Amino acid sequence: MRVTTTHQLYTARLPNGGAAVMDVRSGRGQWQHLNSTAALLWNQVIEGADLSKAANRLTATLAAQGAEEAVVRADLAALVSHLRALGLLAASPAPAPDPAPMHVREVLPAHTRLSLPDRAAGLLALATALFLLRCTPIRAAIAAARLVARLPLRPAAPERADQLFAAVRRVRSAWPGRAACLEESLACSFAAALRGRAVTWVIGARTAPAGAHAWNETHGNQVIGQDPEDRIWPYAPALRVRHGRNK
């Protein structure tokens, strides 16, 4: 079974009209945050529009709203130059996912009893996620998550997904190094697969303050495994690796 990952850029459409672009061509990925005007142009680019025509359309739209045309053209020219310098115009962008409303579920208490098979799955899954994210570029982790998403698994009910994330969190608490949301969420996807279940792996971003986050979802875009004291929502998804899909 072969999965080919060709997309190099993933875009989160932010609630304020801006956008955050994740570039996965190297390392753990690089984020670029765009304001609402830059996002208008970028959204047309990822939908396949010709860059010059998109810039002309945006100039006409903003001028009709009262902006000075010469200023708009100069600003857009500077934006295009910046995007080109970052290499974003030469990379392959994925369509932006739907920022559907999400229900955020809190992580289970630390004293929750977990089965031995779940804890073993959490251990193996976290070790695999740590290896992928520490020793290979993030695009390798994305490819691995997509392979797992193609397995014949049953979607995890929210309560079951909570248990599997808790199993990963239990193991992570004993890990001497740093393991943050990216490692935990990828490990949860792997742990679920080891137990015959599927959860969605999501990487996204927010604004005000700008930041990135990774999480898991299950039925009805329910977000699992979140600590209310240190998770500031809403985040918008840039990449969803969902069971049975390769997008």
Score class of each variant (00 low, 15 high):
residue 211 G to W: 04
residue 137 P to R: 02
residue 61 T to Q: 12
residue 213 H to D: 01
residue 53 K to H: 15
residue 122 G to M: 02
residue 126 L to P: 00
residue 137 P to A: 01
residue 24 V to N: 04
residue 36 S to M: 04
residue 79 L to I: 15
residue 125 A to H: 10
residue 231 R to Y: 14
residue 89 L to G: 07
residue 178 R to G: 07
residue 65 Q to C: 09
residue 204 G to H: 00
residue 246 N to A: 06
residue 167 A to N: 03
residue 106 E to K: 08
residue 136 T to F: 10
residue 224 I to L: 15
residue 203 I to F: 07
residue 3 V to Y: 00
residue 100 A to N: 10
residue 69 E to T: 04
residue 107 V to F: 10
residue 202 V to P: 14
residue 69 E to K: 10
residue 200 T to V: 13
residue 67 A to Q: 07
residue 8 Q to K: 05
residue 47 E to D: 07
residue 1 M to D: 07
residue 19 A to V: 13
residue 176 P to V: 05
residue 224 I to V: 11
residue 198 A to S: 03
residue 175 W to F: 15
residue 145 A to D: 01
residue 247 K to H: 15
residue 107 V to D: 02
residue 118 D to I: 00
residue 101 P to I: 03
residue 90 A to T: 09
residue 204 G to F: 00
residue 187 A to P: 02
residue 201 W to A: 01
residue 179 A to T: 07
residue 220 G to F: 05
residue 195 R to F: 05
residue 39 A to H: 03
residue 61 T to H: 11
residue 234 P to W: 02
residue 107 V to G: 03
residue 66 G to V: 12
residue 167 A to L: 04
residue 107 V to I: 12
residue 204 G to P: 14
residue 110 A to E: 14
residue 215 W to N: 09
residue 208 A to N: 10
residue 177 G to C: 05
residue 7 H to P: 14
residue 175 W to P: 01
residue 45 V to Q: 11
residue 194 L to T: 02
residue 223 V to Y: 15
residue 173 S to C: 11
residue 98 D to C: 01
residue 76 L to E: 04
residue 43 N to E: 14
residue 54 A to R: 03
residue 57 R to P: 01
residue 119 R to L: 14
residue 152 P to F: 06
residue 94 A to W: 08
residue 207 T to D: 01
residue 231 R to W: 13
residue 31 W to M: 06
residue 212 A to P: 00
residue 6 T to N: 05
residue 77 A to E: 10
residue 155 P to K: 09
residue 135 C to V: 12
residue 105 R to F: 12
residue 210 A to C: 15
residue 157 A to I: 15
residue 29 G to T: 04
residue 60 A to S: 14
residue 85 A to G: 01
residue 151 L to W: 08
residue 233 W to G: 13
residue 202 V to I: 02
residue 152 P to W: 00
residue 134 R to Y: 08
residue 93 P to D: 02
residue 99 P to S: 04
residue 60 A to R: 09
residue 165 F to V: 00
residue 210 A to M: 14
residue 90 A to W: 07
residue 192 A to T: 06
residue 72 V to D: 01
residue 132 L to V: 15
residue 76 L to A: 07
residue 137 P to Q: 03
